[in-house]
């Protein structure tokens, strides 16, 4: 059992180089004992947590409150005299703006189509690599790479791949005979949306796989062995063992992907610029535009408030579903 006595006895014979160090730390320990022992757990916790909480209030919570405040005022920046309280006026003009409804539709389609496909592909990848094999290092690098690539730079890369005149996709499709002349993927509303969906599915399916893989690895091996001895098929084992036990992980993966997908900004900005027309203008791209290009800060804040409320509602739905298994 270590004690102060042992330590002081050790010091003179300690390993070379530790001698002056041991002496200094001995003095410091005594000093700290006088200075710090009077602090209790709650006091130390307050000292450690206060800066963190204050920081989050200032940079995360206060801005949300300020956004709501701005959404209820006209001239909130005070550029033309004092701000004026206008009630829900900004919301009224937002809801009568066709571009808002269009961008809401774009974001819902974007989220609703991409997230389920990402989940299915991610599950496939996770099941594929959930074993020991030579070259796992390379496979894992391939899984991490799309996650690490900046969204906006990725958008630029794919803009080049999709290029209507010199793009490599056009070249490949021509060579295999699927098209007869180069097609401007990003110049037509439907194909632009489809092109954007392909990019986000490419980028985030592997992230889904990573999350699901962590869940798969926590399922005990003996469950599968027992089921295999009972003569069940692979598919049965997947639906009877894997899926139910993976449910909490799937919900985490869904929440991790749904919120960012609903807030997509960089991809439409860099790939299509929201076009053609407004066919790929997502909610956040719309909001950014009316706020910083048209300088409609009141309406922009109203849109930001609506986005915040929807995002919180999505989180709440997921979390309430997620919490159930732990309560039981």
């Amino acid at each position: 059992m270590p004690s102060a006595l042992d330590r002081s006895a050790d010091d003179p014979d300690g390993p070379s180089g530790a001698r002056s160090d041991g002496f200094a730390s001995g003095v410091r320990t005594r000093f700290e004992r006088y200075r710090n022992l009077q602090f209790t757990d709650p006091e130390i916790a307050a000292m450690l947590l206060a800066p963190v909480v204050a920081y989050l209030v200032a940079v995360s919570y206060y801005p949300i409150a300020a956004t709501i405040w701005t959404s209820l005022h006209d001239n909130a920046l005070g550029l033309r005299g004092p701000p004026e309280f206008v009630g829900l006026e900004n919301y009224r003009s937002l809801l009568s703006n066709g571009s808002f409804w269009n961008s809401l539709k774009v974001s819902l389609i974007y989220t609703g189509v991409s997230v389920p496909i990402e989940l299915a592909l991610g599950m496939g990848i996770a099941l594929l690599v959930n074993r020991r094999f030579k070259g796992k290092f390379v496979a894992q690098a391939a899984i991490l790479f799309p996650w690490a690539l900046p969204t906006i730079i990725n958008a630029r890369i794919w803009q080049w791949l999709y290029h209507g005149e010199y793009g490599v996709f056009n070249d490949m499709l021509l060579r295999v005979g699927l098209i007869e002349s180069p097609y401007a993927f990003l110049a037509h509303p439907t194909s632009a949306m489809a092109a954007m969906l392909v990019v986000t599915i490419w980028k985030t399916s592997s992230f889904m796989a990573l999350i699901l893989l962590a869940g798969l690895q926590s399922i005990p091996e003996h469950l599968y062995e027992a089921a295999e001895m009972d003569g069940t098929s692979r598919w049965q084992r997947f639906t009877d063992i894997t899926l139910p036990l993976l449910k909490p992980t799937i919900l985490v993966a869904l929440i991790f992907r749904t919120l960012p997908a609903f807030q997509a900004f960089g991809l439409p900005y860099g790939l299509t610029g929201g076009g053609p027309g407004e066919s790929t203008t997502t909610l956040v791209l719309f909001d950014h535009r009316i706020t910083f290009s048209q300088l409609a800060f009141g309406e922009g804040s109203a849109a930001a408030t609506v986005i915040t409320l929807i995002a919180l509602a999505i989180s709440m739905v997921y979390v309430s579903t997620l919490y159930e298994p732990e309560v039981r």
Partner: peptide, 21 residues
């Protein structure tokens, strides 16, 4: 919870006031 919930707030909801500030 106070710390973790801040992760669920959309970035756009914090952008405009921080820009002004």
């Amino acid at each position: 919870l106070f710390i973790l919930v801040s992760a669920m707030l959309p970035y756009i909801g914090r952008l405009i006031p921080l820009f002004q500030l």
